[in-house]
C-alpha cells in the first residue's frame, strides 16, 4: 500500500524555520537537495536534535526523479462533451525543474487558502485550478492536463495562467 501521507506529514512536522544554517535558503530547498543527493539531512541543526528519523524521508511514489521531454501529448475532444477539448502537456521535469513536488509545497505554504480557485495538495502531488467549469490539473511529475477547454487557444491560455500562478508562488 502506498502511504500517501508519510512524506508530507513529515514535512509538516519539520521545523520549517528557514533558518539558513544548513546553507540552503529554505527548509524546502534543503529537502529538494536531499532528494537530488546534493545535501544531507544531517546539515539541518534541528534534524537530529528533534529526533527525526531519516528513513521517514523516503521518496513518495510521485516523487521519482524521472525526466520527461517537454511536449504536447495530445489534443482531443472532451470525453463527455464533444464541443470541448482536452489537452495534455508535459513540462520538462526533474528535480531541478521549476515545477514539481517542492514547488507545490512552497505554493501551498505561500497561498494557503488565499487563492480559492487553486487547490494544491502536495501530499497527492497535484494542483488543480478550476474556473467556469474548465479545469487544469498539474501533477508533480510535470504533466498538466487541461480539460473542457473551449478550443486549443483557450487551452493554452488556461495553461499559461496555471503555470504563472504556480510559478508565481515559488519564484
Amino acid at each position: 500500500m502506498i502511504n500517501i501521507k508519510s512524506f508530507y506529514d513529515n514535512y509538516l512536522n519539520f521545523p520549517k524555520t528557514d533558518c539558513g544554517y544548513c546553507g540552503c535558503t529554505s527548509c524546502v530547498a534543503l529537502l529538494r537537495r536531499h532528494y537530488a543527493g546534493e545535501a544531507s539531512l544531517s546539515d539541518c541543526i534541528y534534524f537530529e536534535a528533534r529526533g527525526y528519523c531519516k528513513e521517514d524521508f523516503v521518496s513518495p511514489k510521485h516523487f521519482t526523479n524521472t525526466k520527461t521531454e517537454p511536449s504536447v501529448s495530445y489534443v482531443s475532444p472532451c470525453p463527455s462533451d464533444a464541443e470541448r477539448v482536452t489537452v495534455e502537456v508535459n513540462l520538462a521535469s526533474d528535480l531541478h525543474s521549476k515545477y514539481g513536488y517542492f514547488d507545490m509545497i512552497s505554493a501551498e505554504k505561500l497561498f494557503g487558502q488565499s487563492l480559492p480557485e487553486m487547490k494544491i495538495a502536495p501530499s497527492l502531488g497535484l494542483a488543480r485550478l478550476e474556473s467556469d467549469g474548465e479545469a487544469v490539473m498539474g501533477f508533480a511529475e510535470g504533466r498538466i492536463l487541461i480539460r473542457r477547454a473551449l478550443n486549443e487557444n483557450d487551452a493554452f491560455w488556461q495553461l499559461s495562467r496555471f503555470i504563472r500562478w504556480l510559478w508565481g508562488a515559488v519564484n
Binding site: S80, L124, L126, R128, M137, F139, R147, R148
Partner: peptide
C-alpha cells in the same frame, strides 16, 4: 470535483 478529475487523481496518485 469533476468526476473525470477525481478518476484521474485516483489513477495518478495511487494507481
Amino acid at each position: 470535483l469533476h468526476p473525470h478529475d477525481l478518476a484521474m487523481t485516483l489513477d495518478v496518485t495511487a494507481g
